[in-house]
Nucleic acid binder design. Structure first.
Lengths: 225, 225
DNA sequence: AGTAAAACATGACAAATATCATATTTAAAA
DNA sequence: TTTTAAATATGATATTTGTCATGTTTTACT
């Protein structure tokens, strides 16, 4: 089992604030696992009781609406922690986490890390900072959902995917996102998402090849209304 | 100047985790102030550099969208802390705070409380809990905005206002919320908010008298689609 | 009280989005 | 490979929501 000390993840997330000793202890009890694309890591309502470190891959966090539709609330990517809120209080997961591609993750039980949260102010501060950033981001998402058109939101998702995951050798978005994922992310019907992607294609902002998408004019996309 | 120790606010928010000594020090540097309905406490982009305790009254936190509309993101009420995120990191306010009615608030400078955050794990934990709850709430708001109809969202706001502020002697909602506020809270045009309130009136869920609103059938409202 | 301004209300119409139907293409499985 | 299922695409139409116009009521101010 690899040590957290050597793991690249350490450089990205709140674990970097832990001391060598703390990291060694965490290392010794963590569970490393591989998750295949489409598999569920945890579901809304379950108790999570620990945090996951994303070593590679990405997942979507979503919630089932009362109308039966899935709403993607955010994406969690390599270097992020997943399930931080399970460390605080004892409530069950509010969201469902499903892998967008093959992932490698480490699970650290709450019991092993909860003391660090109480005793290491750097660690709790780092979690605080992360949550403050998440809240700021949520505010912005709420405003976008409430005030912007579906076309505008789809354009923003394209830009976000481009910035977050980059492109492959041929210039296609490096993450595979189905039309349904687009719809569930911006809160619209799948057909509407498809229609708008077709429209963006006709307008020359993107090109597609199968389900692969290439952004051709990112500045234009930013100005889409 | 009144002491935090004796203030009722102490019982509601994160300040309750401070020791007697810490509270005394905070007390000695806080600034108490009265804010009139409609006045701005701070604006998006400003640096806040401290937290406000809401002793009485309530305010709305909103953000200006790129389309020029105001989006209300959340309400902050008596017993809540306002501007907690200013304690973490050093970023400027993401939201604008405007009083919904006359308020009495206390301002505690960041410099006086930042040490407690680092040294008193109970205090930082209390802030963490609050932020975790806020995040959970934001998730739910995002889902509602993305998936529910305007009518449904207006109905939910009515229920929320009822639960949060209660009613006056005659049964009217104890908070005055303009039609524009309703619109800005659910992300719709003012005319649409007006229309839907009229509709809810016709359907017998609410009655109005001037801008006062009385909920007549809360169970019915919960079932509105 | 009288006047102006703001808030509320409602009709008519336009635009955005959802829904249903039905192809077509792509991916998965036998 | 062949077959089947899933994802993508697009038209037709219904529904929801926004916009503009205009009138009424309420509130604020002198």
């Amino acid at each position: 089992m690899s040590k957290c000390e050597q793991c690249i993840i350490k450089q990205f997330n709140a674990l970097k604030t832990l001391s060598k000793e703390e990291l060694l202890r965490v290392s010794s009890c963590k569970t490393s696992m591989f998750i295949k694309k489409g598999e569920t890591i945890f579901e809304e309502g379950e108790s999570v009781n620990g945090v996951y470190c994303i070593k590679s891959g990405a997942c979507k966090l979503s919630k089932l609406s009362s109308n039966g539709r899935e709403q993607i609330v955010k994406l969690v990517v390599k270097g992020d922690l997943l399930g931080q809120r399970s460390l605080i209080g004892s409530e069950s997961a509010n969201l469902t986490a499903v892998a967008l591609n093959d992932m490698e993750i480490c699970f650290i039980p709450k019991s092993e890390i909860i003391n660090d949260l109480a005793k290491n102010p750097n660690f709790s501060n780092s979690i605080l900072e992360q949550m403050a950033a998440d809240l700021r981001n949520s505010d912005n998402v709420i405003v976008n959902m409430a005030q912007k058109s579906v076309k505008n939101r789809i354009a923003e998702v394209l830009i976000y995917l481009h910035e977050t995951f980059g492109v492959d050798e041929e210039g296609f978005l490096a993450i595979q996102f189905s039309r349904e994922d687009f719809a569930n992310f911006v809160g619209t019907a799948t057909e509407s998402a498809i229609r708008i992607l077709s429209q963006l294609k006709k307008e020359g902002y993107i090109t597609t090849q199968g389900k692969l998408i290439k952004i051709e004019n990112i500045e234009g996309l930013k100005r889409v209304e």
